[in-house]
Design a protein around this nucleic acid. Structure first.
Lengths: 121, 121
DNA sequence: CGATTATATAGCCAATAAGTTATAAAACTA
DNA sequence: TAGTTTTATAACTTATTGGCTATATAATCG
């Protein structure tokens, strides 16, 4: 068994606009499957599949409420995305710095990271 | 012709670990196709395909240098990811706030955004 | 020109994804 | 218990993805 990086599943889940819309909807709070399905021109099973993808990526969790399975957003994978982005953030936050200087700094940081073993693409 | 959200292409491109590794490599500066292919147990055409995916997502640009087509990272789509993440950032940055209070605040913000028309899943 | 190097393209294959309809299962309601 | 509501699963289809090998193209070198 090899656990493909959590980022694989997270980015793949986020690549679909229906699933991003579902996450956006869940920012307003819990919602059932039918409530989540309502805005979409799509069958209920299709939405259930999307929810499974989100759940497998850890982006939502579900509880039981009678027949309903209310979903709520789980933000943890997004923190991983945020952390992954960190590596690149300097590239656009330092728009007015000279690029070559910036890259030198980043290379130095990379050396430091390698020295302590942190390495995930 | 309907232009599927740039986020679709960006997230899909980032969902593959080979492509994320290529981006990480490009943080060290420009690299040719063969240079980028070298670390991977994968044919050159496979890497060329990955580069095309990255290029279509706007994550890299290529120039011509004799026979080589050096690639460089283009960070703009990552800024879009960063912007998309903004909506959710409060959820993990405010871990110690009461969740219901937080969600109320977010709903208010959403009303404000709707009022001025900003809406992208 | 012919040879070499770097990259792209074509054609193939297997696996996955995203949708469908039909049906099953779970939990409530009368 | 029988019916209703909500969700999940199965089976199928079509399109996309990611890899391969073989080949074509582009640019340089001798």
């Amino acid at each position: 068994m090899f656990s493909t990086s959590g980022l694989d599943a997270t980015f793949a889940a986020l690549a679909d606009p229906t699933r991003r819309a579902i996450l956006a909807r869940l920012m307003e709070g819990e919602a059932s499957v039918l409530e989540l399905a309502e805005p979409f021109a799509m069958s209920q099973p299709a939405v259930s599949k999307h929810l499974k993808v989100l759940e497998n990526a850890g982006l939502i969790t579900r509880r039981r409420d009678a027949q309903r399975r209310p979903c709520r957003i789980d933000v943890e994978p997004l923190t991983e995305v945020n952390h992954w982005l960190e590596r690149y953030r300097a590239l656009w936050e330092a728009k007015f710095q000279r690029l070559d200087v910036l890259l030198e700094e980043l290379k130095d940081e990379e050396q430091a990271m390698k020295a302590e073993g942190g390495n995930e693409a």
